[in-house]
Design a protein around this nucleic acid. Structure first.
Length: 699
DNA sequence: TATGCGTAGT
């Protein structure tokens, strides 16, 4: 085989890889009679181009020999999946002289993962910088929305080309400063098609589609990316017909064109049209299929989403995470977990061999690297953990939090927030505290997201002082923080403090929202601050422009009801300008039971059953009301009604944390080892209560 | 003559 022939094969592989036919490219690679070093690099580069990192690394591992191109590629692979430490380790241990491209790959890796400071360090260390180095560093500032720094850097750059200018335009677009973006665009000495596309898609993304179209019409030359940009622009602005028109007109389409159009249809809810396009798409790629999947998921059509998912040839982590999030959203955690477990794990290829080559006496590092490998990313973990929390499976959320730590994945603010929320809901104070410590160790001491979750966790665990402490430590509390602490005060019986905090918040210039009012009104209710509660309720619409929801009415009905002003409560309820819900009637019923108003109680209980026909406790309440009134016929009719509706009693469940162990109790389930003790203690307590003159309501 | 690494656009 002549060398010339191999070069032809290599070119073919490259063309296939860059035109949505990565599998065909691989077939060529496997079939070619003679492979040289460039063939291997081309194939790896093809995988990288198609975001198939594990395939790329697998091939790298098998290479008979490697050159600087190979090393640079694999460094880029690792930075692409956020494995900076691994990339840097390779960069430091390179067996040959580093090329500028190699340095640039490492700097770009830091930049893409938000490590501008590390990027700058390497930039400063670099012996000889080329134009790409300068542009890469500039992109560090523009991509992290540091346009002040970017401008300074740009002005003192030793050399510039059209890429430098395009970066500046893009940076201004990202921060929404379209005037500066256009100013730079205008000043570009020789704008190329990228400059035009950057500017036009900037307009489109900032809802200035007419200006975008004007630029598109004025462009001196248009390539497929330009067409894709204007089509995506129309889609983003919900002008789907215009998008489709251009899609039909465009001279050539690539997978991004199809994906943009499918996405467009998905966004406006036209799933059938989207599906039609996907069927017509010549070489389906994972991005288009994933767009279709999320369309189905948004419309609660999980089965169809799954069918598409099953068809994907090479699933990437985004596809996996999308389908998992779909099952989470529809509450099917079993399937979510099943898929999560099916996600590809460590590659069978001997990473060890590869790493051993480097490790040479540094096996601890090699081992750590090995342990970090795996296809599941942080998004997968977070999706699952927050899914458990959202679906009330708090123990599972905590269990997976632990598993994640065991696999060496570092939690981020989302993981911490979900974990803390799980603790809050089962009052797991000790575990909550541990997660608090862990979050501090991971650098989230004053993180807003984590802080807000901490406030709620400590509040719900009855540690209001710790909640206040967290509140004071957060850098720049937002509305959520204030709401969380006000609700915390309310929950722990500190009505006056809640109202005081509410006033303080208004003085600070924050506008309360509906959540704030639920918190502060319920604080008033529980602290018996009747006049204050009524005044606050009135102020909602009059001073704060917040429309009361049924929840707010429920608070006031509760407030009046507890104070014995039942008739007022009832009048307020039936005069509500919005639809009442179970909560409002439930509040009235509660008050009727305290004040033994059977007449009104019956009305409320009947309404409750109407609203929640499947909830057993409502029937029990209604039955009790009738029993108390001595209407035994009615009691019987409730029993029949329950049977007719097929209402099944849901067993109650509660948790308690003892010495870091969470114990779960299911009513009528005697498998808990200490059930007998618990029941005996309970009996004793009830006896004490009775003796002190309190009649517990144990219905 | 021809192929592979690092910076900008969908």
């Amino acid at each position: 085989m002549s060398n010339r022939n191999t070069v032809t094969w290599n070119s073919m592989i490259s063309v296939f890889a860059k035109n949505d036919r990565i599998n065909d490219a691989r077939q060529l690679f496997d079939q070619m009679p003679e492979r040289n070093l460039v063939s291997w690099n081309t194939m790896i580069s093809g995988y990288l181009y198609n975001d198939q990192i594990s395939n790329a690394v697998e091939l790298f591992d098998k290479m008979p020999e490697r050159d600087l191109y190979s090393w640079t590629l694999v460094i880029t692979c690792y930075t692409r999946i956020g494995e900076l430490e691994k990339a840097r380790y390779m960069f430091d241990q390179l067996p040959c002289m580093r090329s500028p491209a190699c340095w640039n790959a490492m700097i770009a890796g830091y930049v893409k993962n938000g490590g501008v400071v590390d990027a700058r360090k390497l930039f400063d260390e670099m012996p000889v910088r080329d134009l790409v180095t300068w542009n890469t560093m500039l992109s560090g500032y523009t991509q992290n929305e540091e346009m002040g720094m970017a401008l300074k850097f740009f002005e003192k750059m030793e050399m510039r080309d059209v890429v430098s200018w395009n970066l500046m335009v893009h940076g201004f677009v990202e921060v929404g400063d379209m005037d500066s973006a256009y100013d730079f665009f205008r000043r570009i000495p020789n704008p190329n098609v990228v400059s035009w596309v950057t500017m036009l898609s900037g307009y489109a993304r900032n809802r200035r589609i007419i200006e975008a179209r004007k630029l598109f019409d004025k462009m001196p030359e248009r390539n497929v990316v330009a067409w894709n940009a204007i089509i995506a622009g129309y889609c983003q602005n919900s002008l789907i017909d215009e998008a489709l028109q251009l899609f039909k007109e465009m001279p050539e389409k690539n997978s991004a064109s199809w994906t943009a159009m499918i996405n467009g249809f998905v966004c406006v809810g036209k799933l059938d049209e989207a599906r039609n396009l996907l069927n017509q798409m010549p070489y389906k790629n994972v991005a288009a299929q994933t767009a279709m999947i999320s369309g189905y998921i948004q419309n609660k059509r999980i089965k169809e989403a799954r069918l598409i998912f099953n068809l994907i040839k090479s699933r990437d982590v985004v596809a996996w995470n999308t389908i998992i999030a779909g099952y989470v959203q529809c509450g099917n955690m079993d399937e979510a977990v099943k898929l999560f477990k099916q996600m590809p794990e460590k590659n069978s290829v001997s990473w060890n061999t590869l790493l051993a080559g480097f490790a040479q006496g540094k096996m601890d590092i090699a081992l750590r690297i090995f342990e970090q490998m795996g296809e599941r990313n942080l998004v997968s973990w977070n999706s699952l953990i927050s899914g458990f929390t959202q679906n009330g499976l708090y123990m599972d959320a905590l269990w997976y939090f632990v598993l994640m730590a065991r696999e060496g994945k570092r939690p981020d603010q989302s993981t911490f927030a979900s974990g803390l929320s799980a603790c809050a809901n089962i009052s797991a104070l000790q575990i909550g505290k541990q997660i608090h410590n862990l979050s501090a160790k991971n650098g989230y001491v004053s993180d807003l997201f984590v802080g807000n979750a901490l406030i709620t966790m400590y509040s719900k665990c009855g540690r209001i002082t710790s909640a206040v402490q967290v509140f004071n430590d957060i850098d720049g509390c937002d509305l959520i923080s204030w709401n969380a602490l006000i609700a915390g005060y309310a929950l722990n019986g500190y009505g006056k403090e809640a109202v005081q905090l509410f006033q303080e918040m208004k003085i600070k210039g924050l506008n309360p929202d509906q959540v704030t009012f639920v918190a502060v009104l319920s604080a008033c209710t529980h602290a018996g601050l009747i006049d204050q509660g009524l005044t606050l309720f009135k102020s909602m619409t009059e001073d704060n422009f917040v429309e009361p929801l049924a929840e707010h009415y429920a608070c006031i009905v509760d407030l009046l009801g507890r104070a014995g002003r039942l008739e007022e409560a009832y009048q307020l309820l039936i005069g509500m300008p919005i639809k009442a819900n179970a909560g409002t009637w439930g509040a009235l019923l509660g008050a009727c039971r305290i004040h033994r108003n059977l007449e009104l109680g019956k009305v409320a209980a009947e309404k409750l059953v109407e609203f929640e026909p499947c909830k057993t406790s409502n029937y029990v309440l209604l039955s009790n009301i009738h029993a108390e009134a001595g209407s035994w016929d009615e009691v019987e009719s409730v029993r029949v009604l329950m049977k007719d509706k097929g209402v099944v009693k849901q067993p109650g469940r509660s948790w308690i944390e003892v010495e870091n162990q969470i114990h779960s109790f299911l009513s009528e389930n005697l498998t808990q080892p200490r059930t007998k003790e618990v029941c005996e203690t309970l009996k004793m307590l009830i006896g004490h209560l009775r003796n002190s003159g309190y009649m517990p309501d144990i219905t």
